[in-house]
Design a protein around this nucleic acid. Structure first.
Lengths: 346, 346
DNA sequence: ACCATTTATGCATACGTTTGCATAGGTGTT
DNA sequence: AACACCTATGCAAACGTATGCATAAATGGT
């Protein structure tokens, strides 16, 4: 059915190879012939058969984007959703197609990755998994396929031979805490999570800011949730007594911060008047409910475009060297939930 | 590099065709040979080259999922995000890959669709665009590629020769309104949107329920937003006077309902005590903030799996007949925001 | 033991493209 | 006029798989 280069060749009175070369803008072909071929191809609504092309060139013109299977939980969809948007924009701009894959167990499985690579369905991968085991790493480097880790934290054990892009969470934790300290707060509760190195880094940023300001780190001010709204809500609800002394709360995800705000609301504790609350991520939702959430902006657009651009660069030049880390800085988004400088810090 | 059927053939001491047949479980091959070939293939980590396979069979084993470019706006990401999850689950279960495409102008463009089809990158399409023009319809049917419209409302003008899956919005509008009426409400504000036929249908459901209960339809009780949180917030804020008489609000999206709740909160109007609020969509968020949002559940999982299952069925049997509409019923999710039966309806 | 039938395998071609190599025709230099 | 050298084109093989057809081997019936 579909019109092929052979059909065009017949119509143009040239050979099939001349058609192929013309369509690929080969300099071997004379201007005149090329133009004629292009005209006819256009008239016939010609499109390359991508499969034949990929078979011949070993290039699929597709990029695989790998997410963990559970990315929808814990309000992560808000984060990933945004990431996804920016990624596809860049992918589109660079004329690649996007194949989305998921790994069931985000820490150990790489079945989808292996399959897509082995089947030659993708030219490169953006891997947005929190971690990957060494066998899979080995598979990837043996397969000589360009890939980029796009995640939340630095992966130490594959540092030397991979490309990774991540945000500087220590910095994010630091600027959030510094903001609260600058507003006069001394007792700052830290609601974090144990699931993910990025949270550890944020805690380190928190600690760094405290120490720098000569504030003692108090173990009792650490709370741990699972990143979700519900855990933000219940962590605060079950630890309201902390806020008899503490005047501020640093939540390591916005969605936990929103849960916390809701908990304070139901206990008639006013934010920011009585407690300052700062989040992390800068999800859209933080801009909806009163008080508007002050937070740390995750540089999503930057991370996404950098990742794709770097990947395409790797694909198209394929230098089996030149590994690179890119670190992106988060920034502060000051809205309402931290209020203004405390006049009388407790 | 990669191991091919030819390599396996050499190792097994059989011909390439025998390998191909074995791997495809052809009944022509003896159990013994087949098992040996399969064992060797497994040992060698053999995977088919998808491009060669697709070229030969004209089957890509991929499904295209087409979204409008702006699906992230207006809180739609919450809806589409969920849809996307269920779709990919079903796609995975049925062993297809998922290629995600976007159309720039959701009403007129079909460039991505055309390209993916012409290039043979997909075997079928799930088209989640609000509409499609007749040229594109013609292209699709000429291309003889199975596709399904997955959307929010029934598309009349391509009814006769397409598969479409949509929810019964009239029913949804009806049950939401009926719920409020059953609770004793008579004056019910209807916050809808003019952008999308589904909203018109929900309004019709609203009207139907009113009429059925002998309540006059009051033009003044209709408000229109753009589906967003902000428009929910401001629509209510700018029309607070309506609620001197009206006792209930039916918002045609959850996210508008949340905006409305926020507006009531800031005006110290208690929900559900003073005003009952019902939403539409059943997004996760509605289950977070107090009062928990009573709403109409969009049967997302059902729509998604039905769409994919039907599509795969079309792909694998390809009957160029047998067009079918599937209508899915929304259901009521009663939480807190409508409260209980009014004792003294105004 | 012979033939007919079934079962299992291999051969060869096709899918639509890219690309190395050969070559025909044209240009320029001596 | 002879030669070397481009330029533009075509030929043919290759990519890895699937499959129609031919055929060899095994089976069964007499």
């Amino acid at each position: 059915m579909a019109v092929t280069t052979k059909d065009i060749a017949k119509l143009a009175g040239v050979s099939q190879s001349t058609v192929s070369r013309s369509l690929n803008r080969s300099p071997l072909i004379s201007k005149k012939t090329q133009e004629r071929v292009l005209r006819i191809a256009k008239e016939q609504n010609f499109e390359f058969n991508a499969n034949a092309r990929s078979l011949s060139t070993n290039i699929s013109n597709s990029i695989g984007l790998i997410f963990p299977d559970d990315y929808m939980e814990f309000g992560l969809n808000l984060y990933f959703g945004a990431l996804h948007t920016h990624i596809r924009e860049t992918v589109e701009k660079l004329n690649y197609d996007l194949i989305i894959g998921f790994e069931k167990n985000k820490y150990t499985d790489t079945n989808t990755i292996r399959r897509l690579v082995a089947q030659k369905k993708v030219d490169g991968l953006i891997i947005a998994l929190p971690r990957i085991n060494s066998e899979s790493m080995e598979f990837l480097s043996k397969a000589k396929i360009p890939f980029i880790f796009l995640h939340f934290h630095q992966v130490q054990d594959c540092l030397s031979n991979t490309n990774q892009i991540y945000a500087d969470h220590l910095h994010g934790g630091y600027i959030a805490t510094k903001h609260l300290i600058d507003l006069g707060h001394r007792k700052i509760v830290c609601l974090s999570s144990k699931d993910g190195q990025e949270f550890e880094e944020r805690r380190n940023g928190y600690i760094k800011a405290l120490i720098e300001s000569g504030i003692a780190v108090n173990e009792n001010l650490f709370l741990f949730g699972d990143r979700s709204f519900k855990s933000g809500f219940s962590s605060i609800n079950e630890n309201l007594k902390l806020f008899k002394k503490a005047t501020a709360l640093f939540c390591h995800t916005d969605i936990m911060a929103l849960g916390a705000l809701e908990a304070f609301k139901l206990s008639n504790i006013r934010v920011p008047e009585e407690i300052a609350v700062i989040g992390y991520d800068d999800i859209e939702l933080g801009n909806y409910f009163s008080p508007l959430l002050t937070t740390v902006h995750q540089p999503r657009e930057e991370i996404s475009s950098l990742a794709i651009e770097r990947l395409v660069q790797l694909i198209e030049s394929n230098p089996r060297r030149n590994h690179k880390e890119i670190v992106v800085k988060p920034s502060l988004v000051i809205r309402e939930s931290c209020g203004t400088k405390l006049s009388l810090p407790k």
